[in-house]
């Protein structure tokens, strides 16, 4: 990696509630030297536009109130349509593990269960950012 910090857009879907986990992971990514754009709530278009404008390396989506499959189904094609083929997309939160594989097939690089140390996510990003594409 060059000296430039990894830039992460941390988003939640447009109407979601709770913020504990997304604030924690934002802080843990920052602790690891990453630059985090804390986007809170967005529609697919809003997330894609923010990712473009901020020129992020990673889009991390925090899920609380389900809808993750629907979101991934729409988000990944929308990113491709804007030419963001090099961005890493990861999901985390209240997601049943039987959905991890369907998410992967939709183009989400990795889904993380809740509760893990942020270092697990940090290590994954550092090992794979720039090497994966949509």
């Amino acid at each position: 990696m060059s000296g430039k910090p990894v830039k992460v857009l941390l988003a939640k879907k447009k109407i979601d509630v709770h913020g504990r986990a997304s604030k924690l992971i934002a802080r843990e990514l920052r602790d690891a030297g990453m630059e985090v754009v804390y986007f809170r709530f967005g529609t697919v278009d809003e997330i894609v536009n923010a990712a473009l404008q901020e020129d992020v390396d990673v889009i991390a989506v925090s899920i609380m109130t389900s809808g993750h499959l629907h979101l991934a189904e729409n988000l990944v094609p929308a990113l491709k349509a804007k030419g963001m083929n090099d961005v890493m997309v990861i999901f985390g939160g209240i997601i049943p593990d039987v959905d991890f594989e369907p998410l992967r097939k939709m183009g989400v690089h990795r889904a993380f269960p809740a509760g893990l140390p942020g270092s697990v996510v940090v290590d994954y990003i550092n090992a794979n950012v720039g090497k994966v594409g949509l």
């Binding site: 049943p96 593990d97 039987v98 959905d99 991890f100």
Partner: peptide, 10 residues
């Protein structure tokens, strides 16, 4: 191992 718990789906 993963839980493989089949969730309630609306």
């Amino acid at each position: 191992s993963l839980e493989q718990h089949e969730p309630f789906r609306v």
